[in-house]
């Protein structure tokens, strides 16, 4: 089980802040493609960063069951 967290506009678009993918291993890019197909995000992950277990990660990072993936649209704190 891979946990996926969504925030801000992506969370609103998906209608949920958390998803669980019943897979043992996936690439970040594969998760993006699956979510884009499912939710049709207007920004198509443009400018969106990825994190695995609270650390920034790249598209070709492989995640395994038990990992938490977060998609981080452009930040605007401060």
């Amino acid at each position: 089980m891979i946990k996926v967290l969504l925030f801000a506009g992506m969370q609103e678009r998906a209608g949920t802040n958390e998803l669980e993918l019943d897979e043992d291993r996936l690439l970040i890019s594969e998760i993006k493609n699956a979510l884009q197909k499912k939710y049709d995000f207007p920004q198509m992950f443009q400018g969106c960063l990825s994190a695995v277990n609270e650390e920034f990660a790249d598209d070709d990072t492989e995640v395994t069951s038990g990992d938490t993936v977060a998609f981080i649209p452009p930040v605007s704190g401060g």
Partner: peptide
Amino acid sequence: MWVGDQLEKVSYSKGHP
């Protein structure tokens, strides 16, 4: 409006900030 994710004002060409 969520600031930051509209109008593609911000993009990370290198995949990280």
